[in-house]
Design a protein around this nucleic acid. Structure first.
Lengths: 327, 327
DNA sequence: AGATAGCACTCTAATTTCTTGATTGCTAAA
DNA sequence: TTTAGCAATCAAGAAATTAGAGTGCTATCT
């Protein structure tokens, strides 16, 4: 258990280090607290033994360890009010009824990336509550048709299929079959239905049914897949912890890795903070994320920055955005 | 006019510098040519006076100036055969008939970015020869309809429009009107037709016609706009000329700037090389680009790298890709 | 007249040394 | 329990040193 003074010291070290990016020494601290530098040093030593602080070298000031950040975030952090100008800018995005949800999300996260100089990620999975509304085809030439599917929430996906060896009539039949049998099915379940209900039937009367089946399978697959949008990637370059080019490259390639990014999906509805090794992405970053859920959509929004991150601000912003989009 | 020996020296300096990234001195050169280092030095001095070579400091070896690269590219460069493995990998992409052109392009440029460690860009403008094939709507809920347009080349664009204050019937009428009046029109000309032929008519019998008109205008605008795809951005980090983080940031932000990237569009059918200040993007890069034209599509593919670029290889690859996609 | 050898000169880059100042840990006194 | 004081540590920067690569110039050679 930490004494009051120890908590004050830890809190000051975390906030000062976040602000100035330099190890915090006893001199600075004893100005803020009413005690001598020696006292502070003794306390710091105790905090270091507890694993909450670290030194960069024997005679340096202290920086927070991951456990130190964790203690700060869990017990000491105060959430301040959002800055009025920032709220205003965000409001103008949310008030714009012209925009689709995905645009609102990417625009607001762009803004947040600008404000904070961190990187943000939106991960949305459209299938959630979507049901197949309609599937239609448009023949555009001799052997090319466009297949278009629309969900009951207004999402659209399309694919061009080449129909060499298949008559347009056969395609139409298949589309009619799908429309008759599986319209109304949740997108997540369409693949299964397609395989077990449609495939056997079209197999009977369409010669090259494999090709046709695959095309439909693909387009349904596309719409139910997760969509990743990474915003403000270049902000990585702004932080002194990422000055080494190979570190930058490592993080960039992770940010570009769709699989990796999809794995940040968050089920939990709170604002969740994963500091350093607590996240799977990179031990040198902190990921703050939350799940959102609207009537149309569900997904995850995340902010990625150095461990030396403005936790209070980011938590606030994320919370604000989450609440705004959930209505 | 350069003597034979001068040309040999220039060529060696360019190729060696491209290979080793270090200023080339007289010692190395006199091993390759049969003459003493003093002779080489005299020649280098002449080449420097002509503006083809530069020094990084008074007693350094020489590096090519922009004019030096230009002379090399115009007069000295030899195009070697493509590496068999590379051709093979490219062929597997081109042979895959399942892929759409845009996928073929992005996949092959991904491969090229991997091979060369440069950054590639595809800029395609779908409208080129596309004509409006069909416009359709799918009502998905009380006051939301999805508008879908398809071109005769199989491109699809869609938009959700909210129809508060407009009846579904009115929307249908408008769609029918468009289908009757402007199907078959080249996409580039649709906007004009929409404004001068459709707008006046719907203005008469649809109350909130502005909203409707804008929605259609947007979706046509989207499909006729240029599409930019930047591949292998992280490769920028691999070159020693881009070690300074602020330089990296500058280039990254240019690569992210859609306007900037759209401006690299190339009309010319040759392989065009823009070295340093010759391109508008950044004085420290070279852009090699060409226009491509298929029966469906037209666009530009470009490779961006440091001025110290493997010109011969890139020109070859680009030429190969251009020829492949043009059939 | 063009090519070459030789030499003094220049400059980078790497290594070393020195200095400064911030900060610590420890001890003894308050 | 707190504080004052002091020796020890270390980073970071400045200055000095060295080694090596390369140049320009000049006198000589073919």
């Amino acid at each position: 258990m930490l004494t009051n003074r120890q908590e004050n010291i830890l809190k000051l070290i975390v906030t000062e280090y976040i602000k100035l990016a330099k190890p915090v020494g006893s001199k600075l601290l004893c100005e803020r607290l009413n005690c001598s530098s020696a006292t502070v040093r003794n306390e710091m030593q105790i905090l270091e033994e507890m694993g909450l602080l670290e030194k960069t070298h024997t005679s340096s000031g202290r920086i927070p360890s991951e456990a130190g950040y964790r203690y700060y975030v869990d017990n000491l952090m105060e959430l301040k009010e959002l800055n009025g100008e920032e709220v205003f800018k965000l409001q103008t995005i949310f008030r714009n009824t012209q925009l689709e949800l995905s645009d609102v999300l990417s625009k607001s996260l762009e803004l947040i990336s600008d404000i904070t100089s961190y990187t943000s990620v939106v991960l949305d999975k459209k299938s959630h509550d979507n049901k197949l509304k309609e599937i239609s085809i448009v023949p555009v030439s001799e052997n090319l048709v466009v297949v278009i599917i629309v969900t009951d929430q207004g999402y659209v996906e399309h694919k061009n299929i080449e129909i060499t060896g298949i008559s347009l009539e056969e395609v139409r039949k298949t589309v009619k079959l799908i429309n008759d049998l599986i319209v109304g099915t949740p997108i997540d379940e369409v693949s299964a239905k397609l395989e077990f209900e449609i495939k056997p039937i079209i197999g009977k009367y369409v010669k090259q049914h494999e090709m046709l089946y695959n095309a439909f399978y693909d387009v349904f697959n596309d719409i139910s897949s997760k969509n990743v949008n990474v915003v403000g990637k270049n902000n990585i370059l702004k932080h002194q912890e990422f000055q080494a080019l190979d570190k930058v490259e490592e993080i960039f390639s992770k940010l570009d890795d769709k699989e990796m990014m999809q794995s940040i999906e968050e089920k939990n509805n709170d604002i969740n903070i994963y500091i350093g090794h607590e996240n799977k992405m990179d031990p040198d970053v902190t990921v703050i994320k939350t799940n959102y859920k609207t009537n149309k959509d569900t997904g995850t929004i995340a902010i990625i920055g150095p461990k030396r991150m403005e936790y209070d601000k980011v938590v606030n912003l994320l919370d604000y955005i989450k609440k705004q989009i959930e209505r």
